[in-house]
Amino acid sequence: MMNKDKNFKDFYEQTLVPELIMLDRERKKVDRRVILIVLITVIAIIIEAKIIPEDAGDWKFVIQPLTGILGFILISVVSKNYRLNFKNKIISKISTFVDKNMQYTPEGTVPEEEFIRSAIFQHSCDKYKGEDHFRGTLGKTAVEFSEVVAQYVTRTGSGSSRKETYHTFFKGIFFVADFNKHFKTHTIVLPDTAERLFGKMGQKLQSLAINRGELIRLEDPEFEKEFCVYGDDQVEARYILSPSLMQRILEFKRKWNTKVYLSFRDSKVYIAIRMTKNLFETRLFKSVVDYNFIEENMRYLILLTGIVEDLNLNTRIWTKT
């Protein structure tokens, strides 16, 4: 790790800085345009407030917000190229630096079918989008991951007053890797909310959870405190979740310090890491020629590709190669 740090400093200075200087010129241009758009939008809203007659009724509440939304859309349009350039020129290079076998697609995402197959979340997935897709074979393990936002929809009312509301049930990183053992059944590891809240009663509640298979009670008390496990097969779930893997999952969870969900299916492991931060993005109004700002992206990528080692997926002492 120390070695990689030093290398990254060199890599940053030699390869990234020239690109970053170019990007920063572009940023200043975008900054000016954004300020202009904000000014025009604000002025437009003020003028609208003056000229819309008092008796305009509902229109009063529509025009001003619409102007604001238009301003936001314009900002995202004028900054789109700059954002993509940052991803294509900087993030893709960092990706190759972290592991040369990795392919980066800024606008790609882990396929929705994979997300649904994992069956981690029981909401119906009505809207699915993502970005920053990485894919590659790290050591012996094929992996892919991306940022994902998944939403379900609720509908109220009918006819003209019919309203659709989208609710986000997952936002964060979705990670798929080939698992190092063969297995046939489905096992799922969820953060344990019931047991922490209700203790013994929680355990009862967990065992009543519908559509989740049997509750698997594992012998590691620390693990049981953090997670609850459901599976189709008591033995196979334990075959997958060996005592050492349980320890590794615990450490992994502590490292990220957020809610993590794991699903084992079709000899693959699916991991969902909840996260509010949008990773691998550039910024406005502040220079991007900034080592700490760039290094943070590298750190996240190392953390993500490190999952393979964290879960020991490159150990192939079983029949699966």
């Binding site: 053992k181 063969h182 698997i216 009670r217 594992l218 012998e219 008591q234 033995v235 196979e236 334990r238 075959y239 060996s242 079983w318 029949t319």
Partner: peptide
């Protein structure tokens, strides 16, 4: 693989 499966089935038995 078999050794780990045996171990897993014993843990399941114990549970």
């Amino acid at each position: 693989e078999v050794e780990e499966q045996i171990s897993a089935s014993r843990r399941a038995y114990n549970a």
